[in-house]
Design a protein around this nucleic acid. Structure first.
Lengths: 212, 212, 212, 212
DNA sequence: GATGAATGAGTGTTCATTCAT
DNA sequence: TATGAATGAACACTCATTCAT
């Protein structure tokens, strides 16, 4: 009896379908979609869904973990570009945050679901490590370049990612980036890095009223 | 015969108890606490709760509205101090954001509940106006002082309030403020304003892992 | 301490307002109107309503009793006309049933409410007696005239009243009368009495489908 | 691979139990029995009940539909006998109405529930059609025999079914039939058809008092 | 007496999870 | 192993009735 019993091919296929369906459903309709609905969207029965993910929390955690994987890939690619000298490290950090803020828009419901369910472990710790390592090196390079403030750490990036207004429309998200970047970049680096981000404030119309 | 019948003394008392209990329960146990539980925590029957707030949405809206009132008061007091010359406007804005980040810790779940329920009107529109007016004037003064960036608006403050990591421990909230302030203050004003914000990064221990 | 303590003038007024409001509300919106709504429509507080009618059942019974009173009056007037010779007794019986079927349309919800609540006693027994006595005499006269079948009794009239399709549109109610009358009148009396009731059936359109 | 998956055996069994329990409970305790109580009587959990009938209205509609089916069968059998010449069509109509008045006693509360809930479609339209077609032919034959009045239609039968005093004791229901039949049969046919309907009136004791 | 706030059992319905088929 | 029927605690909300003011 092998301990690392490999998954049957159809089981793998089902897992994939479930994960995709869960992502799509939660994204589209919020964290309160029923397990039955996710199962149906995946084309399997609830029982099958529960065989792969014993609780709803587990399912959501798996969806979040997949997102972490994507983020880790992005961080590593950013680092690769900076290492290759094809771009400044600070610009890559900014680009990374920008992309996260954008892409998260799709995932914001998932984030909400994760929080709402008190999701704890993020599946694969190694993805998290990959992301952390890449971002750490990116920050170090940027600091050596004199573009990134000396006190900035990887946790700062995570903190900003966690507070990104992913549920707001694009102009608001852009304005948020503008407000956030000076805290990461050095005053001297400002103007040198960044994508010429126009500092114009987001119009009243776009925000209407505080989302207290 | 006055048209506005004053509320009975016991009714007022119950309303207060309900509001407090709702705030406490939602804060402590998330937006999905049952109405029955809130009622029990308030020491009244469900029916009483529903007499005061016809729907759960109404109840949450009322809790939010109370918070808005507090925020509006804070903003006006900040403005009063700045006008009196007893402090710099920029420092008042910073202080305001600091206090919001702190006090909101109690209210973050309420905020989530409000969003989850699609709470629309925040009870008293005038409180919102009061807050907006005070903050707008504060910003204008700070800009005249050369401390606040020219492009900053009231909506920026609201955006930051909305994204404050109110559910994080104190050191994290402090670090967030440090990251955020450079986006509001002028590079030249930096160092002049602010409470010499310690730049020490938040330790790993405090954050554990990204809250993606 | 007088046993027949007379009602205070305002209490009488309130009782009247409540009865009228109850009748109106139940008629208009069905037996499931809340006591609060009836009280509001009457312009009194629920407490007052409950002072006059200890339970909802009592209130509905009172409304029904009022209807019995009207019916008793009608029966007596019918009898008076027959005695005066200004009309045939059989025609009066028919007219009586017709009027009941018509007027009950307004009261059908009340009837439903009464049944739904298992209303037992009809308030004033004397009204019932008045109606019974008048109808009995009317029947006797009609039988003497040779117009009403010998076996018909007052209970038959009550049975027909109870089964009248009061919730159906006018043409259906008319057709019901046409179907019912031959059972009361003698074959020979048929044609002599009755209001030339056209025997044309109610069109399909009017009934659409069985109300099983 | 058949598109119409056959219901699982236990599901079929449960559906039956639910339908029977619903019929019994509603009959016994009125239309306002709770879904929980019906479920308990059926020996299943509420969830199961809701899996089979998404709303209370659906459940009641299903119960009514079952009754319609029985009625349609009865009508068709009546017609078959008349066609076979083993009985007069008029007698079959009378028999049909008699049986409906009898059997409906079980269903009268269901009828009330259906009306109270505004039940619309009676499940299988075809059952209704079967009943209508059979009754229509029965009437036509009876008219050709000279036993049934020329103006009688299927809708008249439905009207009488709907107004049958199904909640009254047997002697009352019998008396009601006696009162109703002359409206359907021809004066000349009277005495020729019918089961020599005893003309004795229903005694006071049986009816107690008008059910206004 | 009148008032209307408070009560709380009950309603129809949902949904994460279990388990017989 | 996949299926989907069954489970039952929970939920937001209602309303006849009681009782403090």
């Amino acid at each position: 009896m092998s301990v690392i019993r490999p998954m049957r091919a159809d089981a793998v296929r089902n897992r994939r379908k479930i994960l995709d369906a869960a992502n799509a459903q939660i994204t589209a309709r919020g964290p309160e979609v029923g397990m039955d609905e996710i199962a149906q969207a995946a084309g399997v029965a609830v029982g099958t869904l529960y065989r792969h993910f014993p609780t709803k929390t587990d399912l959501v955690a798996a969806v979040v973990a997949e997102y972490v994987l994507v983020v880790a890939d992005d961080a590593q690619e950013s680092l690769a570009r900076a290492r290759a000298g094809s771009s400044r490290a600070a610009d890559e950090v900014i680009g990374f945050l920008t992309r996260v803020a954008e892409s998260s828009a799709d995932h914001h419901a998932v984030k909400a679901a994760a929080q709402g369910l008190g999701v704890e472990g993020h599946g694969d710790k190694s993805d998290e490590s990959r992301a952390s390592a890449a971002l750490a090196e990116l920050i170090t390079i940027g600091q050596a370049d004199g573009d990134i403030r000396a006190e900035v750490t990887v946790d700062d990036i995570y903190l900003l990612m966690a507070t990104a207004p992913t549920d707001q429309p694009a102009p608001v998200r852009q304005r948020w980036l503008d407000l956030i970047l000076p805290g990461i970049t050095t005053p001297s680096g400002w103007g040198r890095v960044g994508r010429e981000a126009a500092a114009e404030p987001v119009g009243r119309a776009a925000r209407k009223s505080p989302a207290w």
